[in-house]
């Protein structure tokens, strides 16, 4: 794992990507910090961070696009998968490498609240909790980017798909609000999602019976639930969509609340996607 970690980290700083990422990220944070905190005398650095969570959409794909896609393309995956390391170690090494780069950026921003505290009363604990949560938010995006990168052997495809998916998670909150909260809409929306999942299943497994079987069984469960207990579905679309809304979990931190559920959410999200990446690598062997 350490070998892959070191290799990845070195490759970011051998090429320009590592520097570009850090420079651009720090520039944006710096600009927002300057205007919000220094010019307009706002004491909350965590609030400034919440304003710039959108740059993850742009910058994380830059960092994660090459992680697995490039290995697949250069056929160096053959070296990794035939070396005495587990798939988990490979994914962990790669994930920790990108996480380290993000941590470097967040590490530098740790000075910002300190600078503010020289000019007045700043609640440092909530500022640092905000920085920590922001790092975890980034980690969630990184794990998703790593997962998407493992699905393809083209960096560009990985970057574009990551970008679209990230954009979707940000817009998710707004989209969820547009659905009416009655239970019939919910059943229809879930059925559509089910169909999409079945199509994806078919694409991945090339097995029509399994895909249709899963679809029919799940739809049957869905309808039985609907007819036996329709109130279960009230407002459920919003609930489900907001599960996927990664960004809104940060909101509590901006008002100085240490939201443990958000921390748990981010960590489980990250673990889940890293787990999925490991599965993609393992599946490759069996295809």
């Amino acid at each position: 794992m350490l070998a892959i970690y070191k290799k990845e980290l070195r490759s970011y700083f051998n090429s320009m990507i590592g520097y570009v990422f850090m420079a651009f990220f720090l520039l944006i944070i710096g600009v927002y910090y300057f205007f919000n905190n220094l010019m307009y005398h706002l004491a909350n650095f965590e609030y400034t961070l919440s304003l710039i969570s959108f740059i993850f959409i742009l910058l994380i794909p830059l960092l994660t696009m090459r992680l697995m896609a490039e290995e697949n393309k250069q056929k160096t995956d053959q070296l990794l998968y035939t070396a005495p390391v587990t798939a988990t170690a490979i994914v962990a090494g790669k994930f920790l490498a990108v996480l380290t780069i993000l941590s470097m950026v967040m590490g530098i921003t740790c000075f910002y609240p300190l600078i503010l505290s020289r000019y007045g009363d700043v609640q440092l604990s909530s500022a640092y909790a905000g920085i920590g949560a922001f790092l975890l938010l980034g980690a969630a995006y990184l794990s998703m980017g790593l997962f998407i990168s493992s699905l393809t052997d083209s960096q560009v495809v990985a970057a574009v798909i990551s970008f679209v998916v990230f954009l979707f998670t940000v817009l998710m909150d707004g989209i969820a609000g547009m659905f009416s909260s009655d239970n019939k809409t919910a059943v229809i929306v879930f059925s559509v999602i089910l169909v999409l999942i079945c199509i994806m299943l078919y694409k991945m497994m090339h097995n029509l019976t399994v895909a249709i079987g899963v679809g029919v069984v799940c739809e049957a469960v869905l309808l039985t639930l609907f007819f036996t207990n329709p109130t279960l579905f009230d407002g459920s679309v919003r609930k489900v969509f907001s599960w996927l809304s990664v960004n809104t979990r940060y909101d509590n931190f901006t008002i100085g609340v240490f939201d443990l559920s958000a921390i748990v959410y981010y960590i489980s999200f990250t673990v889940l996607f890293n787990f999925l990446t490991v599965q993609v690598i393992k599946k490759k062997r069996w295809s």
Partner: peptide, 13 residues
Amino acid sequence: GYLPEFPPLYPDM
């Protein structure tokens, strides 16, 4: 030790 058909090399190293 395995040398595949396409040597698995990292061009930037």
